[in-house]
């Protein structure tokens, strides 16, 4: 494992901790898209089917379990928690995420590395992860104001993607055979979706002002 991959995993972990902190400390999930969180839960559940079949390392196994458990916990909180669910911006979180699931599944059936159950679900999870942030970005755009922790949550998620691209570049030059093009292309699409958000995030950071997205 190289430093970029590790930094990517850590920023991913931090983003989840920031989100859990926001929900726990403020007992509110305003500004957070339940649709995006449900998509992430589905992404982890379908990608980590290999928990039952392959062992890579203790690190990988623990991280996989953490990602599955935390994404399910967040969805549970936003749907079931007596106090938290009241702050959910239901009226503006209207992105039709079922279409993203359907499109990702069709693409996975058509484009995969091998026609097996695991490989198709792996490809599905990669495509779905690339698109899963869309409901969140649309929600932020609609609400205009972004509170600090929500802004940092999305920032760390984007940073995680950026580090993964550096990781692939590094692996491309250091490993003899590297052909993970499904993951790489989807990863580039996914990171590009954050470009607009990053632009406004850095402007607000530079001006030391509250993050605001244009309508």
């Amino acid at each position: 494992m190289n430093i970029f991959r590790f930094a990517g995993d850590m920023t991913h972990l931090i983003s989840i901790l920031v989100l859990l902190l926001k929900i726990y400390a403020t007992k509110s999930c305003s500004g957070i898209s339940l649709k995006t969180q449900e998509l992430y839960a589905l992404v982890f559940l379908t990608r980590y089917l290999d928990l039952f079949t392959d062992f890579i390392s203790v690190y990988n196994t623990i991280m996989k379990l953490v990602f599955i458990a935390s994404s399910l916990a967040i969805v549970w909180c936003m749907r079931m928690h007596r106090v938290v669910r009241r702050s959910y911006d239901k009226e503006i979180d209207t992105f039709r995420h079922y279409f993203l699931i359907l499109a990702s599944f069709l693409l996975a059936v058509l484009v995969h590395e091998k026609f097996t159950f695991q490989e198709i679900f792996w490809a599905f999870s990669i495509y779905l992860e690339a698109l899963a942030i869309l409901p969140q970005l649309v929600l932020l755009q609609r609400s205009g104001n972004v509170d600090n922790l929500t802004g940092q949550y999305v920032f760390f998620l984007g940073a995680y993607r950026a580090f993964y691209i550096l990781n692939w570049i590094y692996r491309y030059f250091t490993e003899q055979h590297f052909s993970r093009w499904i993951a790489c292309l989807s990863g580039i699409v996914q990171t590009a979706l954050y470009a607009d958000f990053f632009y406004y995030y850095f402007i607000s950071w530079k001006n030391n002002a509250k993050l605001q997205l244009p309508a």
């Binding site: 290999d50 062992f55 990988n60 590395e113 091998k114 792996w122 993964y164």
Partner: peptide, 10 residues
């Protein structure tokens, strides 16, 4: 060489 299972990234 294609990267079938196992996948080593998260």
């Amino acid at each position: 060489e294609p990267s079938f299972y196992p996948k080593d990234e998260l």
